[in-house]
Amino acid sequence: MGTIKLPRLLIAALIFYVVVTILSLDQVHILNGYFMVIINRSLIFVILAASLNLINGITGQFSLGHMGFAAVGAYVSGTITTLVLKLPAPQPGFWITGPIFIFMIAIVIGGIAAGLVGFLIGFPSLRLKGDYLAIMTLGFGEIIRTILNNIDYVGGPRGLLGIPKFSTFTTITLFTFLIIVLLRNLVQSSHGRAMLSIRENELASELCGIDTTRYKVMGFVIGAFCAGVAGGLLAHLLQLAHPTQYGFLPSALVLIMVYAGGMGSMTGSIFAAFSLTFLTEGLRVAFDNIPSFRIGTMDVRIGTEWVMVIYAILLILIMLFRTEGIMGMREAKLLIIEEKKKK
């Protein structure tokens, strides 16, 4: 992948981490637990949106079942950590057997499992494009959800319960950072350019000798892997995983983030994941404070049920007036790998 200069992104991530941590300290108390929850959720959405962007935005495929991958990651990693916790207590002192290490391994295994599913779904994608592919991935997502609903071992409709709470701001930031680095390096490598060329013109890129099959499947596998990691983090944050969390609607929300941010722009996805998560919470707070009024004998209250209406209108407006999303194809400087000039 050539020479990669990490420092700038690493520094930015460290500054973000340190600043948020300091602000959330009890003594400072500028960011209370509520803000930390929003930030944690935003970070998980960053992974989901950036990885969906790899499939939809960079490779030019289309997935409507992204949360299906997240479900696989959540259930697999959740099952592993709950099983391991049931074993006799690991010996303290050996960090290899410590719970955090097991958690990290479990998250990665969950990601790999999701990647395998992505591999399975990636293959049919070779034959389909555009909206057919969209509806097909939607179908796959629904099938995953249906199956989870019917496996009693993982709780069926009760959900997978008792997952230990290992996701903290620290672990989530760490994983988010690693995934962004992974995606950024991939996109800006020759592999990434090959993926982009498929999006621009599949036939032409094939004629240029690019193995389109390989790159399309690769897009799906890596995208699914990242979604699986995000799902695992979410499950360990909420301490449960439930089939309904991974249906069509959550997938659509991630899709909205990708489109709002800009197809093909990692910066856009990161920005949109943060701003839309914060916007939803902001709207919630705002709507909570609208007083009720009377029409006839009925109390009418404009409440939080209108937040989703606004969300939907926002999506339509973005599509109508800024189809290319907030960032278009542009990337922030932080996410661009500096190339050493070769002579």
């Binding site: 909206d131 909205i256 489109y259 939907a312 209108i313 999506l315 339509i316």
Partner: peptide, 14 residues
């Protein structure tokens, strides 16, 4: 074409 599809999802949600 896919922008219309996303818009359709938006209309449906709305």
């Amino acid at each position: 074409k896919l922008s219309s599809l996303v818009t359709a999802i938006g209309v449906s949600m709305f």
